[in-house]
Amino acid sequence: MNFDTTLFLQALLHRAPGHIAEHLQLVLIPLTLAVLIAMPAGILLTRPAYRRQAERVMSVFNAGQTIPPLAVIALFFPFMGLGYGPAVLALTIYALLPIARNTVAAIASVPEEVKEAARGMGMTPGEIFFRVELPLSIPTIMTGIKTAAVLTVSTAVLAALVGGKGMGAIIFAGIHFFRFELVLAGTLYIGIMAISLERGLALLERKLTPPHLKSARRRGTI
């Protein structure tokens, strides 16, 4: 393999940076939408009235996860046409599962005796949720959001296939023209975006986590 340094630098410094903003949009909008949908849905599934349905709903989610990312991206565009819209919709759906799954798991794993103690002190169900269940669940929920974020950064590459632009444009160009340099340049930016987003969310998590859980935070995160 002969590495074309000029091509690589040109891609790295001139072509790729133009796609950063596009790519970030493809990540942040679906991620925000997914959090807004999946977290309330997950919380709802742990409420007594819906708890029985939780397992069934989650198995539908899990089955959804077996659809390959390429197919998820591809599925919407025959109906919505080429462009940004179908990509955002597909990426949103793809990010739902890790967030919903971790939300359900986190709230379900709050020890029964802790909730029992809260009830015994006279807390209402609402107070129990906001003062006990939610704070204790934040580390696990944030882990789900971080997983979804990293997943979306790399899946968003596929948006380029349906006209959704982003960093995928330069990577696929590299594949088509057999130019390893373009793939490498695009991938470097993907990596930087994934790491920054993960770090940013970790920072947010530290702000949200009750102090006594922080030592335990490192365990069991993805």
Binding site: I171, I175, F180
Partner: peptide
């Protein structure tokens, strides 16, 4: 795991 799969394919296809 964090590298998009398409990138990995693209990077390794150029390896002799």
């Amino acid at each position: 795991f964090c590298i998009p799969s398409i990138s990995l394919f693209g990077l390794f296809m150029s390896v002799p």
